[in-house]
Simulated scan of single mutants.
Amino acid sequence: MADVEIRPSYATQLLNWPWVLIRFRCDHRPRRGDAKLAACAARYGEFITIGEPLQIFRRSCPNSPEMRQRRQQKYGLKCTGYLADLGAPPPPNLPPTMAAWTVIDGGKKQA
């Protein structure tokens, strides 16, 4: 069985999310949040997509169009919440201390 690198997307289920944390970020406001994968799976179920917790994060944003206190604006700011790890390659299966050693050319000179 070949190791195929599959990058996660918004349709990835929590069951298949390769990281232990779900990292939420926003560009317009100093908002950020980290959620543990196990806690999200226990609360919402392991078969929901990763996009659903992101929608919950976006709903709490003051720039969200779903906020009832906010008037509808045609050209106003919109929530730009995103998942920081989306599109990144999956983490390695082995910790760095267990990975193979790499020989670097031009190392210590022979006496």
Rank of each mutant, 00 (worst) to 15 (best):
D27E: 14
A35K: 05
A11P: 00
A38F: 10
K109Q: 14
P8L: 09
P90Q: 03
W17C: 08
C40S: 06
A42D: 13
A39I: 06
H28R: 10
A100L: 08
R59E: 03
D34V: 11
R58T: 01
G33I: 00
R59G: 07
A2S: 11
R70T: 02
R43G: 02
A42T: 12
Q72N: 15
F24M: 09
A38G: 04
T97D: 13
M98Q: 13
Q73A: 13
S60W: 06
G107S: 11
F57S: 06
V103S: 06
L54H: 02
N63Q: 01
Y10V: 05
D105E: 15
L15I: 04
A2V: 13
S9Y: 03
C79S: 03
C26R: 04
T12F: 10
Q55H: 15
C79W: 02
L54V: 02
R58P: 00
R71I: 07
A111N: 04
A111S: 05
M1D: 07
H28K: 10
A42S: 14
D105M: 15
L54P: 01
K36A: 09
P8K: 05
L86G: 01
G107E: 02
W17F: 06
R43H: 04
L86T: 06
K78A: 15
K108M: 09
M67T: 04
A99L: 10
R70G: 01
G87N: 14
D27P: 00
K78N: 15
Y44W: 09
A99Q: 12
N63D: 12
V20W: 10
M98R: 09
G107P: 00
T49D: 05
R23P: 09
S60P: 02
H28E: 02
R25V: 11
G81N: 07
Y82W: 04
R32V: 00
Y82F: 12
P92S: 13
R59S: 11
G87Y: 15
V103E: 05
L77H: 10
R7N: 08
G81Q: 05
P18M: 01
V4R: 08
K108I: 12
N93W: 07
A84H: 03
R59K: 06
V103N: 06
W101V: 08
D85E: 13
R43L: 04
W19R: 08
T12P: 06
Y10M: 11
Y44A: 05
G106L: 01
D3Q: 09
P18Q: 00
D85N: 13
A88Y: 03
G81T: 03
A35T: 00
W17A: 09
P89Q: 01
S9D: 13
C26K: 02
E66N: 02
A38W: 08
Q110Y: 03
R23I: 15
R29Y: 14
T49G: 03
D105I: 07
C26H: 05
A100G: 12
C26I: 01
C79N: 02
L14G: 09
R43S: 11
R71N: 06
A38S: 14
R23D: 15
